[in-house]
């Protein structure tokens, strides 16, 4: 948390020191100070702490969440840029695992059970299949925030990891440091980009777009804490897993029924 507002604190300190203010004023980033104040809608970040639950057993791989995300967040439509995507896992009886995510799973997946699917046609037997939606884990210990040289990627007080696109220098160290492939470089702005939990929506009390459109409620969004939200119920009632726990990133996207094959 301490890294979160370091830059703003630094700028605020600088303001008390007129010569530095002049220098900074000339160069420009002072406009950030405007953003440092309270939200005009009265949103108070310290009163919230967000997370997401994903019920793997409910996901049918329809890809609606991916479509909704691309629309809602103006994500480039090309198949190289995703804030969220869906992976399909096919485990065969011989132990082989096949994973795919054609166009991020946006248009769903080709059927596997019949002879149009090459491995099955070739005589392979499927043991189990399942879908895994992925997105930025809004890690509590985020390596992307640690490595950002200028603090453009930061952890907000409500637990959401965000990128300041007016400040990002486009060095892409954060993309290298994220173990989950959650980030991309926006080809239009040349800055790092990723899931924000639909920050513009949740701060107004709305749900993230992907959660809103999911037909099976495989995605559950809410606050961690003592409120009786669906997320809290899910967290009480289920065995939860996170992705790559050995990385010690402390993700805040919690999965139920997560298979050991998922990386």
């Amino acid at each position: 948390m301490s890294q979160t507002y370091d830059r703003r604190k630094f700028l605020a300190e600088m303001l008390k020191f007129p010569p530095a203010t002049i220098v900074l004023g000339v160069i420009g980033p002072v406009k950030l100070l405007a953003a440092a104040g309270a939200d005009e809608d009265g949103y108070e970040p310290t009163e919230h702490y967000y997370a997401m639950g994903i019920r793997v057993e409910e996901c049918i791989g329809c890809g609606k969440c991916v479509q909704a995300c691309k629309l809602e967040n103006d994500v480039p439509e090309e198949p190289f840029y995703f804030r969220t995507w869906v992976e399909r896992y096919i485990v065969y009886t011989d132990g082989e695992v096949q994973v795919d995510s054609p166009n991020g799973g946006m248009e769903g997946f080709p059927p596997v059970a019949d002879d149009t699917f090459p491995p099955v046609a070739a005589g392979k037997e499927i043991l189990r299949t399942f879908f895994v939606p992925k997105l930025c884990n809004h890690c509590d210990n985020p390596p992307c925030v640690q490595v950002c040289p200028v603090g453009a990627t930061f952890k907000s007080q409500d637990g959401v990891v965000l990128v300041d696109e007016d400040y990002c220098i486009g060095c892409r160290y954060c993309i290298q440091a994220c173990p989950y492939g959650a980030r991309f470089l926006d080809p239009r702005t040349h800055t790092a980009n990723k899931c924000t939990f639909c920050y513009h929506r949740i701060t107004k009390g709305l749900l993230p777009a992907c959660v809103e459109v999911c037909p099976t409620q495989a995605r559950v969004f809410g606050e961690i804490g003592d409120r009786s939200t669906p997320l809290n119920r899910m967290m009480r009632m289920s065995h939860l897993e996170v992705l790559k726990p050995h990385m010690n990133t402390e993700p805040k996207v919690y999965y139920t029924a997560l298979d050991g094959e998922v990386r």
Partner: peptide, 11 residues
């Protein structure tokens, strides 16, 4: 230049 002005000491 932001690297010099507002370096993130953890990076």
């Amino acid at each position: 230049f932001e690297i010099f002005l507002t370096p993130n000491s953890a990076s």
